[in-house]
Structures are given as C-alpha cells and as structure tokens.
C-alpha cells in the first residue's frame, strides 16, 4: 500500500513513468468492468480512455485514504457508465439513439464480437445494483473479495452473501436468456 501511495504521489506531480504504470496496471481491468456493464466493446474502449483522461485531469484533487487507488478509478468508471446510460436513454428521439453494436456497421469488428459478453451484460442488468457491482469487480477485474469489500464499503461476509445471491440470479437469467 505504501508503494502505491508513493506511486500516486509521483503521479500527482505528473511523473510520466508513474502515470504509465497506473495506466498499464489498470486499463484492461477498467475496460472489462465497463464492457460487461454496457455489453459493447468499442464503446467500452472509448469510455475507458475517458476514465483515464478524467483521472489525469482530477489527480491533483485526489486525497489518499488508505484504500487502493484503483477504488477511485472504479468510481470514476462507475460514474461514466451511469452517465452513458443516462445520456443514451434521455436524448431526444431524433438524436443519436441507434444501437451502435451492430456488427454490420463495423464488419472489421465482427470476428471480435463477443456474444457471451452481450449475454452476460443483458443478464447482469437484471440483477440488483449491488449484485451487479460485486460481479463486475470480482469477475471482470479478478479482484479479491477483501478488496471488493473495501471498494463497496461493506464487510467481507456481506460481499460473499451478495456474490452468492448474484450468481444464483445470474444463473436464472442466463438460462432464461437461452430459453427465450
């Protein structure tokens, strides 16, 4: 934790190596966290980059609080996802409301199109917000239960219970999706 605190302090002084390390260590995890929530690879890539750009912009106001620095990045990512859905659903009908996950629109991406990701993302949206958060942090970010507990501000026992109920619900909805 002390190493990470020192790394963040260097980043706050705009040390390029420190930022590069934070970027490399967290980019793929933040991307997966966003991707399974929105179910769209390309939009997840753009949102992930925006998370890091926002973190860079606001790093000087970050205050170390003895929790992993990544917790702050996940919070920014979480807000980014909330904002994404709000804007997507609230724009006037004449605005950009089309589903840009269409494979036909991006044929070069077709091979990489992840059906499983879409199915998981759809099922995930039927869970409670807390269940979604546990699954996103645990599976997409490979985060240990203790760290999930810190980030969500709950006890480990509560996170394990949420994880259990989340997987039960996920199973139900993923089965329903297959049968639909």
């Amino acid at each position: 934790m002390q190493d990470e605190q020192a790394l963040v302090k260097r980043a706050q002084e705009y040390d390029q190596e420190a930022f590069a390390q934070i970027y490399e260590e967290n980019f793929d995890k933040i991307f997966r966290y966003i991707a399974i929530k929105i179910g769209n690879q390309m939009e997840a890539e753009d949102l992930t980059q925006q998370v890091f750009m926002k973190a860079l912009k606001a790093i000087s106001s970050y205050k170390w609080k003895d929790v992993p620095f990544s917790a702050w990045l996940y919070k920014i990512a979480h807000n980014q996802v909330v904002d994404y859905f709000r804007k997507k659903n609230r724009r006037p009908e004449t605005e950009l409301n089309e589903d840009i996950t269409s494979v036909e629109d991006h044929p070069y991406k077709a091979a990489e199109f992840k059906v499983e990701l879409e199915e998981l993302s759809r099922a995930l949206k039927k869970l409670t917000h807390l269940q979604q958060e546990v699954i996103s942090l645990r599976f997409s970010c490979e985060m240990p239960i203790a760290q999930v507990a810190i980030i969500m501000g709950k006890k480990e026992g509560a996170i394990k219970a949420l994880q259990h109920s989340a997987i039960q619900a996920l199973r139900k909805h993923m089965v329903v999706e297959k049968n639909a």
């Binding site: 793929d28 690879q41 890091f52 990701l117």
Partner: peptide
C-alpha cells in the same frame, strides 16, 4: 458453472490497435 461462464465472458480485452492509440494519446496528455 454459471460463475465460470460469466468469468470467461468477462475475459474480454481491448483491441490492441485501439490500446496503442489510446496509450499514445494518454502519454501525450500526461
């Protein structure tokens, strides 16, 4: 079985060419 399928589905990675461009943009901003 459900957890493993979910974990597999979540094991997606960003496109490498996107990541290279994004990294360059970010490093330039820093």
């Amino acid at each position: 079985t459900t957890a493993k399928a979910s974990y597999k589905a979540a094991s997606i990675s960003p496109d490498e060419s996107f990541k290279a461009r994004a990294r360059y943009e970010f490093n330039s901003a820093v």
